[in-house]
Simulated scan of single mutants.
Amino acid sequence: MTRLPAFVLRASLFVLASLAGSTAWAGARCAARHPSPQQLDAAAATALRAVDALEAADASVALIARVGTDLSKQGLVYSHAGFVLRDHPDGRWTVVHLLNECGSDRSGLYAQGLVDFFSDDLVNQDLRIVWFTPDVARRLSQYLAHMPRGNLHNSHYNLIARPGSRDYQNSTAWLVEVMASAQATRPVKDRVDAYALARAGGFVPDIVGIPYTKRVLGGLFSANVAFTDHPVATRLSGDYPVITVRSIFRFFDKAGYTARVEEWRHGRRMSTPGPA
Score class of each variant (00 low, 15 high):
I160Q: 01
D116A: 06
A196C: 08
T172K: 12
S181Q: 07
S141E: 14
Y195P: 04
R138C: 10
T133W: 00
L122P: 06
G164M: 04
L127V: 10
Q169F: 08
W131M: 02
Y143R: 15
S119I: 05
V96E: 11
V188F: 06
Y110W: 15
T94M: 00
P89Y: 00
L175P: 00
L159E: 01
F118K: 04
R92Q: 10
N170P: 05
T133S: 00
V123T: 11
V130S: 04
N151S: 12
A180G: 03
R162M: 13
V188N: 08
L175W: 07
S171L: 00
A194R: 10
T133Y: 00
A180K: 08
R191D: 12
S165C: 12
S181Y: 03
L127A: 14
N100Q: 08
T185E: 14
P148G: 00
V96D: 04
Y143A: 09
Y110A: 13
G108E: 10
D193Q: 12
V115A: 11
W174F: 12
S119E: 03
R92I: 11
V178N: 14
R139G: 12
L109A: 09
V178D: 09
V130F: 04
R149C: 02
S171I: 05
Q125E: 05
V95R: 00
I160F: 08
S107W: 13
A180M: 07
Q183F: 06
Q169C: 07
S181P: 03
N170D: 09
L140K: 09
F118S: 01
D116L: 06
L159N: 00
H97T: 01
T133R: 06
L109V: 15
H153C: 02
Y195M: 14
N100H: 07
H97V: 00
L99T: 12
C102L: 03
L159P: 02
V192N: 14
F132V: 05
W131T: 11
R166W: 15
F132W: 09
W174V: 02
L99H: 04
G164Y: 07
Q142C: 15
R106A: 11
S165I: 14
R186H: 12
S181H: 03
P187T: 08
P163N: 11
V130D: 11
V123C: 05
L114R: 04
E101W: 01
